[in-house]
Nucleic acid binder design. Structure first.
Lengths: 342, 342
DNA sequence: ATTTTCGATGCAATCGGTTGCGTTGACGTT
DNA sequence: AACGTCAACGCAACCGATTGCATCGAAAAT
């Protein structure tokens, strides 16, 4: 494109050979004289020749591009995942095209459409909060398109999923709170239609049960947005309405945990003396706030890299998606800071 | 691609017409009978036909894809910009392909190469910290490729740049500190080869001078990494070594400001009573920490959207880059929180 | 009845690169 | 001299869609 991008034909014309010869010379095929190869390569260098990837894509029906569909870019965890994706894809010679759904199902579907038009070689998907029906994905899988889901994974049999160990992360976090002597532990949960949310709820419940603490459904409060403002309000209402006040908060994410922490401070409670708080994700700010926020670290970069690695292996037929029986689960790690230690 | 993506030829064969007829029927060209149009569209719908964007790109020498080159994805400000880019590009029918340089000049150059191979229609660039020579960009401009630079803009005459008003942001921040009675104000600056850094330094100096305070070069300390750890150490050293201690910190970014704040707390100083702190960027965590961090907000989303809008207008020849005389500057806004008010 | 007109459609080149197969000519062999 | 061998290269089809320029047949005009 543009004025002056040299093509194989330009080289061929200049050297009075056919374009096939140029093509073969550039790729060191046998059956081309060294002399010709030399001349072709020289001229290619001089003209600053760059193969046209579009033409190649058309011919090979391969674009060496993968499509990433993600709820939000401005999100510490997701941006970390993107970084991992970008690194791995780049090192294996693939491009990354990116769309964010802003949590809208409609944009998820239209993203798929434009990506299909662009002949991408495979999808990396973390679905939106609105997505409850996964047919638009299973249709793609049936048609044979490679897809790897990460973090927000759908309930589709035989889908290749990469997640972190949400269950164990939650279990560890809540166990830690219990060991520190907290008993009435609130879980500020995520939307119930997300597997990550239900897994964390499961971890929360199991940790309580493992320590002989009865589960009180009133202590599981949904914070669908996951913002600090939302959880701040929710927490205040909770403190106002409950006869016996909670003594700890386990947030589905760090923003929710911070919101709870701020609400408790507003209410005159001290963290960690009166209230223990643990978050999930280990966002950057956890170590910057006072007191430092304990949090369950999720390896976002590794998740992106691993998902990409799987996808490219599937695309390049190095592995068969049907051989992957269960979800890939990456370990989480509880990082203990001041907010939960008394 | 893949098994079963229908093409125009499939439709043509099935209907016993030529592919030209199908192409024209789909686009409602005159000269095709209504009957044929109906049949073609019906079958296209049934076969779930999607035009092959790759073939179109080859034919038109246009890919409807723009390339974004950015230092880091995991960065609140840049991810916000990406979000703006993605929104604007998407709404105008363009794809976004993304690469991060991780602040490496080499990756900046290789990104350009692969993007050129992929026939992208234009570039959006924020250059790396390593980049001090801009020839690889000016060469592209000479060849006629549309480029819009944002935030980290190069010193190339006639380049189209989108920045925020770094100078005024810094000027306002420092003026505010002075008004609050702080006098010995340290500036934790960014790398000197970035225009954004030098502009902020200029704003810092001018604010001091405007209030009749002498500039002390020892109070301008470079924090090239811009991490909280780095500035925490730098600040500690500063507190240890100076005979007359500073009473305020203006950070080149929020991380640096937080680092300073933490170091001061470690040192037994109170914020804002003993030390005033102002950051730059207004990251999410500014309102979550205690005390809340005053900061200069930069409109990242708007910057991304504006830069994309300009780029697409140049690509579509709606505007001529040469008509854009000066840099586009977006307003900054000082948000005052507790960290700088006594 | 012959010519003109025009609606409806097909042919073939094109974008840039790849690749199976055929062609050419120099050389060696019998 | 006649034939086989092989290195070196060209031809043309192909990937999917677009588009200027035929072409064809039937209705309208003469």
């Amino acid at each position: 494109m543009k004025i002056g991008q040299a093509t194989i034909k330009d080289i061929a014309r200049e050297l009075n050979v056919s374009s096939s010869t140029v093509s073969r010379a550039l790729k060191d095929y046998p059956g081309i004289s060294d002399e010709t190869k030399r001349k072709v390569k020289e001229l290619a260098e001089k003209l600053n020749y760059r193969p046209n990837a579009i033409a190649l894509s058309l011919r090979k029906s391969r674009s060496f591009t993968i499509g990433v569909i993600i709820p939000e870019v401005v999100h510490f965890f997701f941006s970390t995942v993107i970084s991992g994706i970008e690194e791995e894809a780049n090192s294996r010679g693939y491009n990354v095209i990116l769309t964010q759904t802003n949590e809208k199902l409609g944009r998820e579907k239209s993203s798929i459409d434009t990506m299909l038009s662009n002949q991408i070689d495979g999808f990396l998907v973390s679905h939106s909060k609105e997505t409850e029906d996964f047919e638009h994905f299973s249709k793609l899988l049936d048609q044979g398109y490679p897809i790897v889901f990460f973090d927000r994974v759908p309930q589709i049999p035989h889908a290749v999923n990469v997640t972190v160990d949400d269950y164990k992360g939650a279990f560890d976090a809540v166990s830690h709170l219990i060991q520190q002597g907290y008993r009435r532990i609130v879980h500020l949960s995520g939307p119930k239609n997300l597997t990550i949310s239900t897994e964390r709820i499961r971890g929360y419940k199991d940790a309580l049960m493992a320590h002989g603490i009865e589960i009180n459904k009133k202590l599981i409060v949904e914070c669908p947005l996951g913002t600090d403002d939302e959880s701040r309000k929710t927490t205040r209402q909770l403190l106002e309405s409950m006869e016996e006040r909670p003594d700890a908060f386990f947030g589905n994410n760090d923003m929710a945990a911070v919101g709870a922490m701020l609400a408790c401070k507003d209410w005159g409670l001290r963290v960690p003396e009166d209230i223990g708080v643990v978050g999930f994700s280990n966002w950057q700010f956890c170590s910057m706030i006072d007191p430092g926020l304990s949090s369950v670290a999720q390896p976002g970069f590794q998740m992106g890299a691993k998902a990409t690695q799987l996808l490219l292996d599937i695309i390049e037929k190095k592995i068969n998606p049907e051989d992957i029986k269960e979800s890939i689960t990456l370990p989480t790690e509880l990082l203990i800071r001041k907010s939960s230690v008394r």
